[in-house]
Amino acid sequence: MSVIDGFRTRAEGLRLLQDRRLPVLVTAGLFVLMFGFGAFRYQSYGFLDAQVFMNLFIDNGYLLVAAVGATFVILTGGIDLSVGSVIGFTTMLTAWLVEKQGLPLLLVAPIALGVGAFGGYLMGYVIHHFEIEPFIVTLAGLFFFRGLCLVISKESISITDPTVDRLAQTHVPLPGGSFLSIAAVISLAVLALAFYVLHYTRFGRRVYAIGGNEQSALLMGLPVAGTKIAVYTVSGFCSALSGLLFTLYIQSGDPLHAVGLELDAIAAVVVGGTLLTGGSGYVIGTLFGVLVLGLIKTLIQFEGTLSSWWTKIATGVLLFAFILIQRTMTGRRRT
């Protein structure tokens, strides 16, 4: 089965540089390399324990979900800066409804997801119908949702609800004795679903078409308005889901949770090989982007003596390198 159209078109090595999958392969290769480095250096500290690998998914599941949403937006050539704020707001809303209002999580979760999706829908509507830069609209969304956090409460709300606790502690056992958290499993399911949607549905192909050339997509008779709005709705939904997973992970709501997380999400998408100009990239790349960023953190923890801001420096360097790679690739494609 050929997974993605155009995958096995050209065998010639010369064309490899133009291949749209190359950035994904580079990121995957980088991940393997970094992992190999860790395995070699921290062998005696148990780096090769399968659980260390699984923890990457456990610790970064919420980021993966947010980054998957961001991938949709970036593929259309847009940007969503409200991701971190929507996540923070979701943690607050969830904690408040569960703890202060005593509602069951089963009811609170759909509410939170609905609010996130609706927020995304509104931003998409404004972006499309008023022809305003996504950057500005979602920047407004960033402030709006962060502000809403403080309307709920200025203080952090810790969650003692037994359901939340049970969900957070549940281990999904894997062969070989390692395990994943529920959140990690959900994030992988979201990734798989996103892959299916992007590559096997008309909606997904429209996302790519709009990113390739919005004007053309319109002239080809594609429903551009609906697709663009839907993409921001997807991102809002993913942000809210990411917020729920984050709540499980950290078991509290805080107005300052996930500040700036949208930037991590965008970084993961870019490192994963998706072009910020839209139309080119794979959601699988986003997974590798998240894993690479997560692995940097893990390596620095294993190192022990390095302080955590080295994570930021390493991320910055990586991002820079990948943007340069993208630049040379698109430059090549244009000629």
Partner: peptide
């Protein structure tokens, strides 16, 4: 008049 297609998609698409 302007070629209104998407360069990033395959010919078939």
């Amino acid at each position: 008049q302007e070629v209104n297609l998407c360069q990033n998609l395959s010919v078939a698409e």
